[in-house]
């Protein structure tokens, strides 16, 4: 297919008024679980997916509702994958399923994925556009821009059957408490629960004496969108 007529974008200001993401497609990537049977249920979590929809479907399949002669008790394995801003949601889905189903073995894999986005400037997008317009935005007509990005993605395999414990990213069932329990024992000496000299995230470098210390922040401020998922080149 021919490249789009517009010049390659010099790192467009995402989230700038007037630009709208019209399309986002992930390019094919090899499955991070090579030995997996082909029939495994793959849940692709997107930014806008509702957790209750995803979980309603996946839980029903894992618990075997409505399946006839499927070996009894539903599917044995499920994979959750998500990239970019859907990563947190993907992990949350897996965590919910582990809690609800119980005794699941887990392997977590991380990789970069290439994503193609098409952005469109509609001329009159937001409504009452006050500030100056970007040069790239054509007057009147809608202009299109294609952006290739690499975003972090996560794939989580949950299985009722044992998985290879030697595989990097393997987590046995009910590993959560062990993971944090270990830290608790270590932390006992120097970290009383209610007052710590530093925030939980360690020395905060340029921000000076921990902004966390005295004032638990109220509402979360709007954190920069888009920019954070860019790997610096």
């Amino acid at each position: 297919p021919p490249p789009p007529p517009q010049a390659p974008p010099p790192a467009p200001k995402l989230g700038r008024e007037g630009f709208k993401k019209v399309c986002r497609s992930e390019e094919e990537a090899p499955c991070p679980f090579p030995g997996l049977a082909s029939g495994v249920l793959e849940m692709r979590v997107k930014e806008g997916s509702k957790i209750r929809n995803l979980m309603g479907f996946a839980m029903a399949r894992m618990q075997g509702e409505g399946l006839v002669g499927g070996g009894g008790g539903g599917l044995r394995q499920v994979v959750f994958t998500g990239s970019g801003r859907a990563v947190t949601k993907t992990i949350t889905c897996a965590e919910i399923m582990k809690r609800n189903v119980g005794a699941l073995h887990q392997i977590t894999k991380l990789q970069y994925r290439a994503v193609k986005e098409v952005w469109e400037s509609g001329g009159g997008g937001g409504g009452g556009g006050g500030g100056e317009e970007e040069g790239a935005a054509g007057e009147g007509g809608a202009s299109e821009m294609t952006v290739h990005r690499t975003v972090p993605s996560v794939s989580i395999l949950l299985s009722k059957d044992p998985l290879d414990p030697q595989e990097p990213g393997y987590q046995p069932p009910e590993a959560v408490s062990a993971l944090w329990g270990e830290g608790e024992r270590e932390g006992i000496g120097h970290a009383p629960p209610r007052k710590r000299p530093l925030g939980p995230l360690g020395p905060l470098g340029p921000l000076g004496p921990s902004p966390y210390a005295g004032s638990p922040h109220c509402k979360r401020v709007c954190l920069g969108e888009g920019g954070s998922v860019h790997p610096p080149h």
């Binding site: 830290g183 608790e184 939980p200």
Partner: peptide
């Protein structure tokens, strides 16, 4: 007000 996450291994 959001409290800090509970103590963590460091």
């Amino acid at each position: 007000r959001k409290r800090l996450p509970r103590k963590l291994p460091k």
